[in-house]
Amino acid sequence: MTVLSEAGSAPTHGGRRAIRRSPYPGWFFLPAALIYGVLFLAPTFASLYFSLTRWTLFNSTFIGLDNFAQFFREPFLVQGLVNTVLYAAITSGLKVVLGMLLALLLTSAIMGRGYLRSVVFFPVLVSTVGVGITFTVLMHPTQGMINETLALFGIKGPGWLVDPRLALFSVALVDVWKGVGLATVIYIAGIVAIPKDYYEAARIDGATRWQNFLYVTLPLSRPATATVIILSFIGGLRTFDLIWAMTRGGPGFASDTIASVIYKQYQAGFYGLSTAGNVVLFVLIGILVVPLTMFLNRKQGHE
């Protein structure tokens, strides 16, 4: 991978010119390419084959699309699929809305702004497992602080993590609690980057605060919105550690996602099926995120 240079066109000297070394040598790619190629790309490509096999790590039997058929036949696996998309949609939707609102609040002249920014952002840095365990305790149906507090007001709190209809949403809420700080920070960066001239022009045109938001802030922070949506949507589709720390996919299979199914099948020794789960997740991300990215970026191009 040296500089593209044609054969010399100086006929008097004939032959090829010596190629000088580029100041930006290709071998700088080598260490990263080696690690990335062997430990990320190679397994990703291998997964395409192994997902079509019954596999014990030592030998594999080709069984065609059986693993995938199973994925779409077994109700608990199908539920995992549905849950994954639901979880991603809920978390990214809430992060966009709350992140935007918090960012608006935290870019306005508000008392305690520095403190508020810190406090909203800090959970992003804390161990997911730790957060999961803490909220499992707080969401305990009878003894948990959340329901005890609700009881003070005479409200009978739900079984956050034990009610099969609620478990997934409860975990999603904790995910939002932990991740909204990042969304906020991205929005803050986006909003701060909007030139003040626009607001001044809008003010001269007599815009109200609401119109300011609607016609200046919202359209001009669209790149931030795209980022938040894509980032949290991908994160939501891939989510594993929080669900595993809080419900292990339970009760039953009520809060299973593809990532937790992958782990369960791996533990159970169904390596082919587990890998098929990986491929399903991979395809799911492909068919959801790529169009989403294109959609968000096209809208952006309109500005």
Binding site: P43, A46, S47, L57, R238, A259, N278, I285
Partner: peptide
């Protein structure tokens, strides 16, 4: 893309 777990272990 999420990493393909079992093939990575195998590797």
């Amino acid at each position: 893309i999420p990493p393909a777990v079992v093939p990575t272990i195998w590797l």
